[in-house]
Design a protein around this nucleic acid. Structure first.
Lengths: 222, 222
DNA sequence: TAGATTGTTAATCGATTAACAATC
DNA sequence: TAGATTGTTAATCGATTAACAATC
């Protein structure tokens, strides 16, 4: 069932993505995970695809189909075991193992992300914050000292950091991406409003708030 | 070509969305807009679908197909007129007219969004910031005074605010959504990690950072 | 057993893309 | 004109969903 597939998706590119699971399914998994944990914390041992679907906003059959990609089985007439399914999703999504990340661009957004406590639950730990503004260098965001961007590639390489978060203006983003790639980064979470050129094997997730805003804007307009 | 369509998409729900344009296309439009403006500012009068596609990360034929949904014509052998196409996209997306928004939940993320200057270019103006923490009420974010959530519904109704931004914890989000809806809101940009129940006609755009993070996490894992 | 629910196949739906004639 | 590029039809691709037998 292991399928090699080319993903041309503009919002999550990677040259040759080898995976069991369609990207739309992959995006639903964290939602299932969230609701399974919620159910478990409420003392429920089992959750049906119907219930889970309602809480996440997809049809029951979609839930079952998604689970089939992961080879996760439920009990007919009963449902899925909440705890163990949550644990499987957590492992599959790689939320259990801590992943180090660096954040580049300590503006308002960068600062908010650096201070956001929720990432910890998803296994992300920001171990370095960088900025090219020498006035900011040396200051702190939370417990982190802001470092000069010149040190970026070196530190990424030395600490073997896997994830880079770019919260710089658009015109700086490509240089930052290049430095991250040179340091051996695996994935980039790009909040800058531009497309990044990266080599094969580096995954880019664009998080362009303007895109969401434009869609919202259009729909609200009339 | 006006088609009534039911959208069951978990990440952008609305009961009966009446539109010319498929949602995937709609999400590419702001990217085209961005690159067309960039091209125009560099003095280019025309941009081909090939060039535009390259900058946005989609095939040229995709660009042309998307433009055909909007009845936007290019000149064979020449391309699309950058200025006028950008203007059309701006109008279509409703970026030209200013839309008022309220923001609820002035934590780190809420504060960052409230201070984010980029929204202005997309026609969004945050006219109110709310929090249920009485210690925060009366303080300022930028030029805005933080107001108590009790005043939310009333102010939304009085100012006829169209957009609500929720940056509260998950357990508070539904109550906030209810208050927004009661005030007559049209669209909700929901950063809280939960699904909101809203009546037909209210559009919800979920912006769950954990979802992006989980996908990134999975891909980077191995 | 009866009722609930799963897992999977096949049908459907809709977006992407290939092909190519039309046009500047 | 020749070359570039558009616009659109039809083919393809892949995800969602309906249907239903299997199972607890």
């Amino acid at each position: 069932m292991l399928v090699k597939r080319f993903t041309n998706n503009w919002e999550s590119r990677r040259s040759a993505l080898t995976t069991h699971v369609p990207v739309p399914t992959l995006r639903r998994l964290p939602l299932y995970y969230r609701e399974l944990k919620r159910a478990a914390s409420q003392g429920l041992t089992h959750v049906s695809s119907k219930t889970l679907g309602e809480r996440v906003g997809v049809p029951a059959v979609q839930v079952r189909k998604d689970m089939s990609y992961l080879d996760q089985k439920g009990r007919p007439g009963v449902g899925y075991e909440a705890q163990s399914l949550a644990a499987h999703l957590r492992d599959f999504l790689g939320l259990a193992s801590e992943k180090q990340a660096v954040l580049v661009g300590v503006g308002n957004l960068g600062r908010a992300l650096a201070l956001y406590p929720g990432f910890h639950a998803y296994g992300l730990r920001i171990v370095g914050a960088f900025d090219n503004d020498l006035d900011k260098v040396g200051q702190r965001v939370g417990t982190l000292e802001i470092l000069p961007v010149e040190a970026l590639g070196d530190i990424v390489a030395r600490l073997q950091v896997r994830v880079g978060i770019i919260t710089t203006p658009a015109d700086a983003a490509q240089d930052i991406a290049d430095a991250l790639v040179a340091g051996g980064i695996k994935g980039i979470w790009n909040f800058a409003p531009c497309r990044l050129a990266v080599p094969d094997g580096v995954f880019v997730k664009d998080e362009d708030l303007a895109v969401a805003l434009a869609v919202l804007s259009h729909v609200v307009e009339q």
